[in-house]
Each structure stands twice: as structure tokens, then as C-alpha cells.
Design a protein around this nucleic acid. Structure first.
Lengths: 205, 205
DNA sequence: CGCTATATTGATATGAATCAACGGTGGTGG
DNA sequence: CCACCACCGTTGATTCATATCAATATAGCG
């Protein structure tokens, strides 16, 4: 547990290895995972300096670079390039949140799970290996999630995630078992996850 | 229509008066409203400079300040304070998106609508008048939304929004008719919208 | 060994979507 | 002035997706 919703946390942590989950918890005991933090990504940037509006908890052993919040923003004030980079990071963060929002707000269980697992799979694949999509299909990737994690990230129930994963396995879309993710048919999965509409074909208004 | 998903839009627009909706559209014709932009807020900041990943459309007559994207970020590069401000803006934007995500992912129709309308009502009320919550109850506020807007922002159907608003009206929670929003019982509405869990009372893990 | 967390499966309940019809309203043009 | 039309909201009947409740299996772990 890095910090808990409500804590004051005057640091920023850049993950080098391991996974972290960022989530909100609700009075009724439910929670919603906002983001999985992978190596190279920051934790704790989104804050006004007061109580953290979310919880950060490690999912595996984690190493990273811990920086004091005040010092970090002091450095930003001295380096416009750094400040600009942080702004770009934060804006990309918003776009990621909006993708997530669309997935949860407008897709069914299969679509949400497809979107989540495809996104994780993509982020875990070095960009140099892109374009060889077919190559990567069938290769197992280590993804330290439980079905409960998937449920909490997609706004579903773990029971329903279990059923849906079973169905997707039967449909030869993917296989997910014991933290091993195998993408079997990225084309059909991508269609399920409904990538952004080709805006050219949409009549505006 | 300020710009359409897929367009290149090399500007940033700061709204002075009027409302703008930011949304994603999907191949099947559905859409999801990501954000309502109110006076004082920016449009088009979240972008990598390429095709816009969302559509921005005016909901009323709008005035504002239109700035070239390149010039704006040039100014950021010269003024660390400005860059820092933009970064803070973007981070707050992410927190807003996460609130929205929680609402859509973990609440029922009443909760989602309550959260949306309370949020709009709060943003429309000058901060100087805070603490006089009871005062503001019962005062109608102009909110230029249709029920379809509410549906597209909450991930529901306009049919279901109609039924749910009727029920909330009968429960004396609020009244929304023809763009006039009246908050009747902000306490019960706030409970429905499930504000952040009081993290102190939650046992971590 | 029993503990706890995780996954699976079945039966049932429920919230929301869908399909369909209809009424009001404002705008537009004849 | 009226006829028409597009949009918006309402309501009812029905279907469907997902939640809920409950039982069981399994595996890791101290």
C-alpha cells in the first residue's frame, strides 16, 4: 500500500519494475480501479497537494524512483521543458481516462474486457515490435491480475468476469489463466473493443 | 461544431460565455459525452497535436478566447509558471474524468444523474456563495441540457433518463424541466451521488 | 492441517435497454 | 394563418445483460 485515499502523500513515484493499481473505494465496500501503473509511468502526480483522492497499492514487488513533490515541481519551475513534459503527460493521462470511460460507459462485458486486456498487452509490448501483430499472437504475456482486478477495473462483478472470460476462451479470442494472457485473435478482439469510430464515415451532427 | 473527432485542430479555446460538449462517437451511432465545458474552462487542450480524439460542439452561443496551439505552448516554454499552471489544469482534468468514471462504473441511474446535476449546479454557483447550501436550494438554475445529453453523459438511454427523472421529481429530490434545474434536497442527492468514501472509516485492505 | 483467496457454476432477481406508440412544441415555408 | 416537420419527452410492454445469492472446487501458504 503506497498511500490510501485521504492520506497526504507529498511524493511522486516513477515505477521502474512491477505493477501498481490506482483505485477509488466507496462507502459500500466496492471499488473501481482507475488505472494500472506499469514500468515507466508515474504514480501520485494527480493531486492538489492535499489529501489524495485515490489509493495506490502495489500488485507485485515494485522498484522505482521516489521524488519529493515539492522538489519535483521546483524542478519544473526551473525547466520549462520538464514542465511542458509533465503537462503533456497529464494530458495523455486524461485521454487514457476518457478511453476507459468510453469502455465502461458504452460497451458490454466482452467489449470492456477485450479493451482492457488488449491495452495491457499493447503497453507490455515494446514499440519496436509493433507491426508484427500476428507474430505476437499466441505468445503468453505475464499479467499479474486476478479476475477480481478485471472486474473492479471494468465495473463488472468477478462472477460475471469469470463467465465472460470462459465464453471468450471458447470463442478462441484469448486465454487468460493464472496471470498468463494469450491473445488468440487480436483482429476480432479489436473489433469487440470498438476502437475509435472512423470519423470520416460519420456524418457530423 | 468546433471540431470533429479525427480533425486536426491546432488551437486552444478558452470559453468566456456559453456551453460546449466534448464527446466521443462510436461506429454504431452511439456517443458518450466526456465533459461539459463551462465558462472559464479550456477546450482542445488534450491532444498530441495530431487528429483530435474527440468532438467539440457548442450547445449555446459561445464567446471565448481562441489561441493557436503552437503559440500557446511556446508561451508555456517561456513561462515556467504558465507551464506549471497548464500541468495543474491537466491533472485536475484527469481527476474530473476519474470522478466521472466512478459515477458511470459503479452507480445506478439515480446516482449517476444526481452526480452529474449536482456537479453542474456546483460549478455554476460562484465559490463565494458556498456554505450557504440551504440558501441555494430551490433556486432554479439555467442548464441548457436535453435528457438526451444527460443520457449520453451518464451512459444511459434517454428513455431511462426520462423515467428516472420522473421518479426523482416524485421523490422531491430535484426538478429539471426545459433547461431549468432546481435542487430540492441536496443532502439526499449528495448521498445518492456517493461522494468519496470517508477513507478514515475504511480499513485499508 | 486448516486457512484464505480465487475461480467456477447454477438459480434467480433486477435494472436498464429496446421496441413502439403518442403528444407537445417550435420552426419553417407555403 | 395554417400545414408540415423535426426534435423532445413520455409511457407501456417486453427482452436482455448483469447482479445477486449460494454452493463448491482449487491452490497457495503458514
Amino acid at each position: 500500500m503506497l498511500f490510501c485515499q485521504g492520506d497526504v502523500w507529498d511524493h511522486v513515484l516513477f515505477i521502474r519494475t512491477g505493477w501498481v493499481q490506482i483505485y477509488r473505494q466507496f462507502p459500500n465496500g466496492q471499488r473501481l480501479i482507475l488505472r494500472f501503473v506499469l514500468p515507466g509511468e508515474p504514480v501520485g502526480l494527480e493531486s492538489d497537494g492535499g489529501a489524495m483522492p485515490y489509493t495506490a497499492e502495489t500488485m507485485t514487488a515494485v522498484t522505482g524512483c521516489l521524488i519529493g513533490r515539492a522538489g519535483f515541481f521546483l524542478a519544473c519551475a526551473r525547466s520549462p521543458a520538464l514542465a511542458r513534459g509533465v503537462a503533456a503527460l497529464a494530458m495523455r493521462e486524461t485521454l487514457v481516462a476518457w478511453d476507459h470511460l468510453c469502455s465502461v460507459g458504452r460497451q458490454d462485458a466482452r467489449g470492456r474486457i477485450a479493451a482492457l486486456l488488449l491495452d495491457l498487452h499493447r503497453r507490455l509490448t515494446p514499440p519496436t515490435e509493433r507491426e508484427e501483430v500476428a507474430e505476437r499472437e499466441g505468445a503468453p504475456v505475464r499479467v499479474p491480475l486476478t479476475q477480481t482486478h478485471i472486474a473492479d477495473a471494468t465495473g463488472l462483478t468477478s462472477v460475471h468476469v469469470s463467465r465472460t472470460l470462459k465464453r471468450m476462451r471458447q470463442e478462441r479470442l484469448l486465454d487468460f489463466h493464472k496471470g498468463e494472457l494469450v491473445i488468440l485473435d487480436s483482429a476480432r478482439l479489436g473489433a469487440l473493443a470498438q476502437p475509435d469510430a472512423p470519423s470520416v464515415t460519420l456524418t457530423p451532427r
